[in-house]
């Protein structure tokens, strides 16, 4: 099985910040907006280099989303930055009418998604954002797995004309994808070849899936790990072709199992290739305060949970 090496833990939000900085240097139409969370979103460098292209909106996310929609009229490519909770649930109607329905080229960049923001607790730990965003017609939903991929995704979405939801997180996690990767929206990335089970993971859980696959290998189980960084549009062919070989699948995400990646995968398989599936995700619950590692364990989001789900799904074949 192909092995991946952690090049040094880093946070995906810093990948966003680095990507935005690069866009500031290469694309004069890129502008950035923030609702009083510059430091948390790592937008400082972009602002320092492009003060005239940055808009501090204050604590007013609804205003920010619609100002972003307005900025597209005149050819700007706005990147909004705030926490995932305030990027989605708080401003759903603004996104729905002024961005999605209006087809505006706004990039909604959302940090601190999921339980791994940790100690701040459930008010800030949105686990419903993928569902909210994927239901909006025309919205692209991306959840990259590490620093390098988040940076690459940030740069790539500037070249795509249309609304995008880019989801990333707070904690420092393994950085294992190539620094020079080309990010293709909607294209799954095969990380390992396997024959017994397909593990489809997104975001922080991709690394957990790789650890699980390594542990499973020592038990004689061959897992094919696929990184689905784009939840919508979903790379259905990659998933179907893999389960034709393995015959079962585990989906893994830091999100409610209701409305997340797992359900999108289940729909594809139910209509094209019915396959036993197990879901790793939070089970219709809010989060709570704690360290990221404690929360990942308590809510069944770590590599051990994935391993158990694999063993269960193989028995169902």
């Amino acid at each position: 099985m192909k092995k991946y090496i952690d090049q040094g833990k880093n946070d995906t939000r810093s990948g966003f910040g680095a990507g935005l900085t690069e866009l500031g240097r290469t694309n004069p139409n890129v502008v950035a907006l923030c609702a009083d969370l510059i430091g948390s979103l790592k937008m400082d460098q972009f602002i320092e280099e492009n003060p005239e292209r940055f808009f501090q909106i204050g604590i007013a996310e609804a205003n920010m989303m619609c100002i972003a929609a307005g900025l597209t009229i005149g050819g700007k490519i706005p990147f909004t930055g705030t926490f995932a909770n305030f990027s989605t649930g708080r401003v759903y109607d603004q996104i729905r009418q002024s961005i999605a329905y209006s087809g505006k080229n706004v990039k909604i960049c959302a940090s601190h998604a999921g339980v791994t923001l940790g100690e701040d607790g459930a008010t800030h730990q949105i686990l419903e954002d993928i569902g909210l965003m994927k239901m909006l017609p025309g919205m692209v939903v991306i959840n990259p797995c590490d620093y390098n991929q988040t940076k690459a995704a940030t740069i790539a979405i500037a070249d795509y004309d249309g609304p995008v939801y880019l989801r990333f997180g707070r904690p420092k996690v393994a950085n294992f994808t190539p620094a020079d990767q080309k990010f293709e929206i909607g294209k799954a990335v095969h990380l390992t070849e396997g024959t017994d089970v397909t593990i489809v993971a997104t975001g922080h859980l991709v690394w957990e899936a790789l650890i699980a696959a390594e542990n499973l290998e020592s038990q004689g189980i061959s897992a094919e790990v696929i990184n689905i960084h784009t939840i919508k549009p979903l790379d259905a062919n990659a998933i179907i072709n893999s389960v034709k070989k393995t015959g079962c699948i585990v989906t893994a995400e830091e999100h409610n199992v209701l409305g997340g990646l797992g359900e999108s995968v289940a729909r594809v398989l139910a209509t094209s290739q019915p396959t036993p599936q197990e879901f790793i995700g939070t089970n219709d619950t809010f989060g709570e305060s704690g360290t990221p590692a404690q929360l990942m364990e308590k809510y069944g989001l770590d590599n051990k949970a994935i391993e158990k789900a694999v063993i269960k799904v193989i028995e169902r074949k």
Binding site: F55, N63, M65, A68, G70, L71, T72, I73
Partner: peptide, 24 residues
């Protein structure tokens, strides 16, 4: 240039367009 109907969003949109004009 924008959908409207759900109330309260148009002033923000207009501000965004006005900011784009200034940048341009």
């Amino acid at each position: 240039r924008i959908a409207s109907g759900s109330l309260g969003q148009g002033m923000s949109v207009a501000i965004g367009a006005a900011l784009a004009k200034k940048l341009n």
